[in-house]
Simulated scan of single mutants.
Amino acid sequence: MKPAPFGYARPGDWPEALSLLRDGARPLAGGQSLGPMLNLRLAQPATVIDLRHLPGFAGVAVQDGYCRIGAGTSHAEIEDGAIPGRLGAILAGVARRIAYRAVRNRGTIGGSLAHADPAADWVAVLPCFDGAAIALGASGERRIPLADFVLGLMETALRPDEVLRAIELPVLPPEARWGHWKFCRKPGEFSKATACVLAVPGEPPRAVLAALDMPPLVIADAGALLAAPEAEAARIVAGLALRDPWRAALVRTALHRAALAAWEMEE
């Protein structure tokens, strides 16, 4: 299929982009999600706003213990080491397993998060960090905790007149432990179950269980999961009331293996 006719706008600055957004235009980052939706006519905006050339939309800056990642930063840039330190190593490992390199060259971290597909990698991983999504609207920037950003299927906490401008994550010490496991039937496919665990010295470990056809399940204190990975994973998944036994087994395995990966790093 071909998309329905739409206009194309390339704003010169953020105020112009926000003005177009208020008029009902649809923002475009890398186009790896919006493009197929346009072709299938699942999305039929009157105008598409190309954000890729706006200042600060892509790039990485570290200041005051936080790493600010522009929403337009591509998966490939993250994979190739754009983010420094332990945090960068963790995110590069996640980015490396997103789809294929051709997709990673164009797809962006912010576009993926704002699209809010429950099986997407950044939707699953970013809530594990005690960070924030930076929304930009007419009144300026607004910080939204990443754990509260995705509200439902393809639904986020962004207001109609806001655009996702950046993601802010805490810089991690070298000792931070990380476990991540996702199941795809073949390379490049969306995950059927994703889990990750982050343990930072001096802080409660955090965990996320995602690709559940609902918002990610954020476990703010995953100490019990690291202490008894198999038993605690079974207890958590039993409370989700998943209809299919195979799905419950897959989700339980994802959480168990992510916890084991983080726990084994301590050895």
Rank of each mutant, 00 (worst) to 15 (best):
V125M: 08
D13C: 13
A92E: 01
P45K: 08
P216R: 09
Q63P: 00
P160K: 11
A210N: 02
K192A: 14
I109Y: 00
L172M: 15
M1W: 07
G85E: 01
L212W: 10
P36E: 06
E168C: 08
D244W: 10
G24S: 03
R41P: 10
A210S: 14
A114L: 10
R247C: 02
P5H: 10
L217M: 12
V251E: 04
A89F: 00
Q32A: 06
A116I: 11
V208T: 14
C196H: 03
E264N: 15
C128G: 15
D121H: 07
G12F: 07
A119Y: 04
P205N: 02
G31Y: 11
V125R: 02
G140T: 08
A9D: 06
I134P: 02
L38W: 07
M265K: 14
V251R: 11
A46G: 15
E79K: 01
A120R: 01
V197P: 07
A224W: 04
A224F: 03
P118W: 09
K2M: 10
D161Y: 11
Y66N: 08
A233E: 03
A228L: 06
P216H: 06
A102Y: 00
A262D: 02
R142T: 13
I236G: 01
R97I: 06
A238K: 09
A238G: 05
S74F: 03
L217E: 05
E79C: 04
F129W: 13
G30P: 11
R165H: 14
F190C: 00
G81L: 03
P15N: 13
Q63N: 13
V125N: 05
D23F: 01
G223A: 08
A116S: 15
I219H: 02
E141V: 15
A76H: 15
A147G: 12
A238Y: 04
T194A: 13
D50I: 09
D117S: 13
I69E: 00
E77K: 08
R177V: 02
T194K: 04
A241T: 07
Q44I: 02
V125S: 05
E203K: 14
V123W: 04
A207H: 03
L226P: 03
G31N: 05
